[in-house]
Design a protein around this nucleic acid. Sequence first.
DNA 1: TGCAATACTTTCGACTCGACACTATCAAAT
DNA 2: ATTTGATAGTGTCGAGTCGAAAGTATTGCA
Lengths: 203, 203
Amino acid sequence: MVILTRYQACMTAAHEIASLLDRLSRLHGTGRRAAGLNPAQASALDYLARANRFSRTPSAVADYLSATRGTVSQTLKSLAAKGLAQEGPGGSDRRSRRYDLTPQGQAVAGALDAAPQVDLPASQMEEVRDALQQLVRGMIAARGGRSFGLCRSCRHHRASAQGAHCALLDVPLRDEETTQICQEHEPGRTEKARPDGCDAGGE
Amino acid sequence: MVILTRYQACMTAAHEIASLLDRLSRLHGTGRRAAGLNPAQASALDYLARANRFSRTPSAVADYLSATRGTVSQTLKSLAAKGLAQEGPGGSDRRSRRYDLTPQGQAVAGALDAAPQVDLPASQMEEVRDALQQLVRGMIAARGGRSFGLCRSCRHHRASAQGAHCALLDVPLRDEETTQICQEHEPGRTEKARPDGCDAGGE
DNA sequence: TGCAATACTTTCGACTCGACACTATCAAAT
DNA sequence: ATTTGATAGTGTCGAGTCGAAAGTATTGCA
């Protein structure tokens, strides 16, 4: 009996993490709801602002957000209806669609991160961020999902004098695309510990 | 232009944390949905399994989960309808209600943490847990919420030869209650860095 | 006895979500 | 060229969440 209640309180780290995530999810969600957007729209908007041109399709958004295509389709349509995103053909595959942010959408996406959800010392912020990245990676791995890392940390990324190149899709990459999220991302080359590749040394 | 895209990718730690929380919330939520319960019900159930008798009221659940009382009232009713919780009078105040888990409810709550959401080395698990705790505390503090820590880490907690005692409510505490969550919790005594008080030395 | 505050419930409309069915397109085998 | 099956996306449906607002019962204070 004592053992039972003791176990309930001093539970495993995994359970404790799950409980903290419960609370965090709600704290975070209610905070985001404060803006004009609802949480699902805010999440999709943030993703679209950070994903490269190969990764702004409904399917990619659905994978990234762990939602179904049907749900994401509605969310993206509502973003388009609000003038924050624009739908267009996605590439050579005529089934594919792509959603690009409009200038208004980019402005709203920029405003979202201006609203501080939490106020911690900078060093703790980085600790927390690294831990969250570990956690996301662990959960993604546990269910066989995709990593959605930054293009330039991918094992298909090639840099040359003429510019960057993706060996998987066999296409040239614009310079700024190498720091965007890619749905095809596979970790492998450098930056294993930090696949989003946000290191120092600007430029 | 380059600065803009570079900024989008290498954003502030605060924004990065927000984005990670988006993804984490969805990963966590869909994982919980896999059981028979939906996320809100799972969160409430987990809380009820860990809160002491003063803290299992609809108002406390609402505060803990950052939801409104109306929403929580429905969630708790649905838990009761499923036979996982039982509603009863909450104490001397006849307005107050209390929801206790039934044996089935405790079983389901136990099964929830048996399903591993993430698989990381133990040391990383603890790092992640500590970071999440910091984050929750920071977000709670930023919006003036309550800490909901464990009873025995509260500044109103008194230990004596006859047993534990709460100086705020002026009631004796059963032994196992001191390791449960309390809505009246105010950090202050020991364990500032770890207000959930899950230290070693297991009885 | 009022009167305001509190604890909780109920109802309402907007919305999310997953499941499912559906169309369009592609790719590969025949 | 046709068939077959997989894939990308959309539309619809019901269950459920959410916050807001109104309502009830109770408490405590004047």
